[in-house]
Write a protein that binds this DNA or RNA. Sequence first.
RNA 1: CGGGGCGUAGCGAAGCUUGGCAUCGCGCGUGCUUUGGGAGCACGAGAUCGUGGGUUCGAAUCCCGCCGCCCCGACCA
Length: 590
Amino acid sequence: MRLSELFFATLRDDPADAEMPSHRLLLRAGYLRQLGSGLYSLLPLGFRVNKRVEQVIREEMNAIGCQELEMPVIHPADLWRESGRYDLIGPEMARFKDRGDRDMVIAMTHEEVVTDLLRDIIRSYRQLPVRLYHFQTKFRDEPRSRGGLIRVREFVMKDSYSCDRDDEGLDASYWAHHGAYVRIFERLGLEAIPVASDVGMMGGSLAHEFMVLNPAGEDVLVLCDACGFSANRQVASVKVPLVDLGPALPVEEIETPDTTTIADLAAFLGVDATRTAKAAFFMAGDGRLVTAIVRGDRDVNETKLSNVAKVSGGLRPATVDEIHAAGMEPGYGSAVGAHDTFVVVDEIAAASPNLVAGANRVGYHLRNVNLGRDFQADLVADIDNAREGDACPVCGHPVILRNGIEVGNIFKLGTRYSAALGATYLGEDGQAHPIVMGSYGIGLGRNVACIVEAHHDEKGIAWPDEVAPYPAHLVSIGTNKEPRVGELAKELHDGAAAAGREILWDDRDDSPGVKFNDAELLGMPWIITVSPRSLAAGGVEVTRRATGQRSVMPLDDARAWLTGSGPAPHLTEPASVASQAASESAGTRS
RNA sequence: CGGGGCGUAGCGAAGCUUGGCAUCGCGCGUGCUUUGGGAGCACGAGAUCGUGGGUUCGAAUCCCGCCGCCCCGACCA
């Protein structure tokens, strides 16, 4: 591909709206253009990267016996009504009516459609297991897109679905995907950590997310250096030491002026925050006031709370009026004497006797409050929010917290959809059984962005070989001085293309500085320079983009390499200090 | 949806406080020179200043509404 003919444009200045390196570089290097919030066009270069990522995924999916198919982007709303998600999902799903006034939706995922196919096609246990996947556009009207391709509204996802007879089969499918995902991310050059995760809107029983560490990540991971434990904070249960405060003592009301925070209260009374109880109030989408009680030194994890309280429609902070209506007082609140509220007590607080809790009266708290005697819980559960330094649940070593970007996820759905839609098979026992399903996703664009996040330096992108849009970037210099340069560049370019291994050739009439800078910005793994100087040195100069290592390659070797009949350059020269630093910052960022 | 910021040529910005000819750099076109690290000179094209209304003799600038984009939060596979 001649650069002079490529549909692209590089930008010398950073785009004002791009903050993340991947966003900035993909725009600057001409891989991407924005159409609207969370809507991007892939230019030819970006499209090629996407296709290469897709191919890696396709190969690994095929390798575990997944069959590729394609399902529509537009679905009849009735199908989503059958699963119950039509009403469950809010404005995130786009809805419209077709010309026949029928309700339709734009797909945000494909569980419903694949289950519809299953109930049509699967009759007998003999047809199971089956694993299906496709690459298809999803539209999710996110409240807020961000970070270029990191979070968008329209994107292509590889989603696969496993269909088994029983939990044992599902387990095999699940771990087959787990293995395939490990291989996929390794091939893509991503250090993805599988973490136990929340099942979210998908429903189901077990889920892992594959996370790439990144300061701009939207998820918080709880990690243990010592034993390798990893979990999303939304599900992480760390070990928190309990404080034994002895047998229950009588309740005592005490005056505690101006102590609306735990810090103020603990300071005022001269007690540790671990000896207090904290109340947090939420209004659920289903209309319930949810009161969460945690030990004073801990915080509520809203995802956990939402899950254990089986909240539909989400949680929001309650208003003062709503709290008053349940007989409680913000700042001096507790579940003591509360009514018309769903009380969830964290396990740590539940195991802590004689806590200082709010008296539900401005300026007063209660000493020696005990669960069961002084207030009741509708539910005792883990709603604790893990913190850096807490003890690892596996080995007890202090955990660390890191931000991560989710590059893939795997879910055990079970019979959530097959039961709702009536996708059953006849078992050996002659009875109908719901198909046991799993669902597995990888967002292509987000992975492309994460690859750039992990493989770039201050000059630009440095694609791993596996996903680079072209294997090499040929720079011809000094064609005016030496006609052989242009002839040779054309020969190398045309030869590679004829061999089906197209390379990029910067044939533009620009100065060497412009060409080198663009080559480094675009990020092909190899930069090949043809110039009078390289010819005098005996061939072409080859530079490894990621490390800056370079050497001269004889012409015949270069021809052989580029046409696929010879090996890639072997670089013996050590990388310079500067380029080593560059490659380190590029390679270890993840 | 709450908080903050920003919309001026393809990109990046100045001008706005204090109303008075639409600016700068890069990029782009033509010509000549130049060609191993973002070249030089000359000429040139390109902007209804996001949008609608208002105030005013006069609005990029002041006032009101709307739209769009980015960041933080809420939310979220």
